[in-house]
């Protein structure tokens, strides 16, 4: 327990001091949102609601997902620099080493999410959510980020270079475009629509959007199942992989 707390303290201190990481975690989401609201927003029709209300939940899910993948880079960096060897030669669990990275990632994303919501409100985002719905929406996002952070941690253990670890971020930045994040899936060709409706990010986005805009939630359990399932699988995979480093 002490080991995990110490590792969390270490990872948070390191991310606080890595200026690039902080900038990337906050500025990128804000720029993306401005791009979609001001540049594309005028051309995209989502009928009932204003586009800013439609797109903010999508941006939140995209950016937290992308932010979570920086976990992969920090884990790979530790493996490459021999820091992981030092920890592995000490009587502490692999779990605590990875936990430090994952919790720091969740903390960075919580900060980024707050910044995005704040700027969104300045841009005209007017969520209709009650306090309860806010809590549920943020709770789901947290679960989603936690799951993706563990997934990224697993990638970080496998990746041989920090550059290849950063590839995960590229995928996480791209996949949400094939969802209802920016445009309603009804506007897509049928084959793409089938992909978009059945990928895990869509129910998460739909649920966060419904909660924040005070609409009926239709895919809540599906979102929970995807995120929870991913968390369990990713956690198991990451800790298993970490234990197998010794076989290399």
């Amino acid at each position: 327990m002490t080991a995990s707390v110490t590792m969390i303290g270490r990872s948070i201190r390191l991310s606080r001091r890595n200026f690039d990481l902080v900038i990337m975690a906050i500025v990128l989401p804000v720029l993306m949102m401005a791009l979609f609201v001001y540049v594309f927003g005028g051309a995209i029709s989502t009928s009932v609601q204003s586009y800013v209300d439609y797109v903010v939940p999508g941006i939140l899910v995209l950016c937290t997902g992308y932010g979570a993948t920086s976990t992969a880079m920090s884990v790979t960096d530790d493996v490459q620099k021999g820091v992981v060897d030092r920890f592995r030669s000490m009587p502490i669990s692999g779990f605590s080493v990875l936990t430090g990275h994952v919790v720091a990632s969740v903390a960075r994303n919580a900060l980024a999410t707050s910044a995005v919501v704040l700027v969104a409100v300045l841009m005209g985002f007017r969520p209709a959510a009650t306090v309860g719905e806010w809590v549920l929406a943020m709770g789901l996002l947290l679960l989603y980020v936690l799951a993706l952070s563990w997934l990224a941690a697993a990638f970080g253990v496998i990746a041989r270079t920090v550059e290849s670890a950063s590839l995960l971020g590229f995928f996480m930045l791209f996949i949400p475009y094939l969802s209802s994040a920016f445009v309603p899936v009804a506007t897509m060709p049928p084959w793409l629509r089938a992909v978009s409706e059945h990928q895990p990010i869509t129910p998460v986005i739909e649920t966060v959007r419904a909660l924040l805009n005070g609409q009926p939630v239709t895919s809540g359990w599906l979102a929970l199942a995807w995120s929870g399932g991913l968390l369990v699988v990713a956690f198991g995979w990451a800790t298993w992989l970490f234990g197998r480093i010794s076989r290399r």
Binding site: R10, R13, L14, R17, N18, K81, G82, V83, D85, R86, S89, M90, P91
Partner: peptide
Amino acid sequence: VRGVISLTGQYAAVDEEQ
């Protein structure tokens, strides 16, 4: 074993930003 040994590897495994 890990309880009684210490390892200093080939590359100084120290945190640059601490």
